[in-house]
Design a protein around this nucleic acid. Sequence first.
DNA 1: CGCCCCGTTGAGGAGAGTCAATGGCTGTGG
DNA 2: CCACAGCCATTGACTCTCCTCAACGGGGCG
Lengths: 252, 252
Amino acid sequence: MIALQNRLTRYSPLNDASWAVMENLNRQETTFQAREDIIREGDTADRLFIVKRGWALRYRMLEDGRRQIVNFMLPGDIFDLQALSDLKADHTVSAVTTCDVQIVDQGAFLQTLSSSATLAGAFWWAAVQEESILREQIVRVGRLSAKERIGHLLLELRNRLSAALGREQDTVALPLTRADIADALGLTSVHVSRTMSDMRRSGLIEEDNESVRILDKSRLAQICHFDEDYLHIRRPSSPLLDHQNSRANMPR
Amino acid sequence: MIALQNRLTRYSPLNDASWAVMENLNRQETTFQAREDIIREGDTADRLFIVKRGWALRYRMLEDGRRQIVNFMLPGDIFDLQALSDLKADHTVSAVTTCDVQIVDQGAFLQTLSSSATLAGAFWWAAVQEESILREQIVRVGRLSAKERIGHLLLELRNRLSAALGREQDTVALPLTRADIADALGLTSVHVSRTMSDMRRSGLIEEDNESVRILDKSRLAQICHFDEDYLHIRRPSSPLLDHQNSRANMPR
DNA sequence: CGCCCCGTTGAGGAGAGTCAATGGCTGTGG
DNA sequence: CCACAGCCATTGACTCTCCTCAACGGGGCG
């Protein structure tokens, strides 16, 4: 709940009425077990999902067994907002940990957009950020070395989790195996293991029981070409968010 | 014009009124020369762009000179729709060839969405497809070999250009250097050159003066794990597109 | 004509992959 | 309570894809 609240109010405050509307969407909350599929390739994209607790990830599988993780969904993240289209999903989303997910169908979503411009703005921001994360993932996988990719991902997760929690954290619970990290970064689990060991030895990170501590955020960011402002988006005064009078037809 | 028409009417026909609205947006059309920047890193994202003629590309530059091309914009493509947020752009868009670009500001865009649900739907679809292309790029760069990446990209461009032209084409003009292809795929121009020479020798493609001919689409698709249905999205009957009565606040 | 950009090719090197073995941890069942 | 299976992280040895550096040649253009 806190995570979603932080997410939705990140760019503009929500009044009580808007919040009440959100609460109202709460009817269909489902818990998925770790490794359980939330969306399967081929499912029709006619609902959107909000992570209340736990982690999920989106991946695509090749016929020969290769897997590419496209992105991670953390508490407070709204996903398949963009995909909402009644098309068949071309990827699978599955739970990393036990995961409480709020499922919102199209109708309810459209109602929500109609009833609150503030909420509509919040959803819009979530979508903008989602695409920004995809672009960053392309740069990471396409042009960074193994060490840079890992550090860069850790910093992104650190920042996103800090935002969800509402306070800066340098130690983050990381419920991922080496194979998960490898499949997200276009590497192998063996090489991820080697590289993270190096990073530990060189004093960049510490690891302890499924959690990682970033020892020197600025140094790591510099090494990995991580833009410290990335996702630290301050609220601009956008007509998109304040367009009470010109109600658009297009959701989102 | 044909390209944009094909794009906008891909999923649902446009009536004359909607089309008139589109024409009306035509006021601010700009021509960019090859290599000229259309959007610079740091620019405020307060306009959207429609490619009328030519190619453009979006890239991110690292301080040490590495470049990652995030995606290509072809005739008919609408871009920065998703980014529309008054944030500072974290990437640059520049023209590949001489490029006619229609620039639409936020106000005009919102007006358009309000005035035509059909157009709103068309824009929505463009956004869905844009994100789908980004996800595909992640899989390509993350998990495919050099040969697979190149073939996969060629097939995507072939299909997108065919859609823009309104008929299937196996020979496509490819105004990209080896370095461009390399920076899109996370390779070096030397290796792209070598690999494409191999592909020519093994009878997968032919090249002639800035254009590529795909000799056996099915075989190439199989080799590269390219989903032939990718982007061949048929129009589903989505409430999102027919929601005349519940006008949403959120643009797009 | 000469410059520059681009594609190509060769030689050698490096980063990441493959295969395989080991050891720790956890869960389970006798 | 212990034995064993299964999963995961780690490490070593070796391989291979892709990179780096460099040279050469063709074509466009001033």
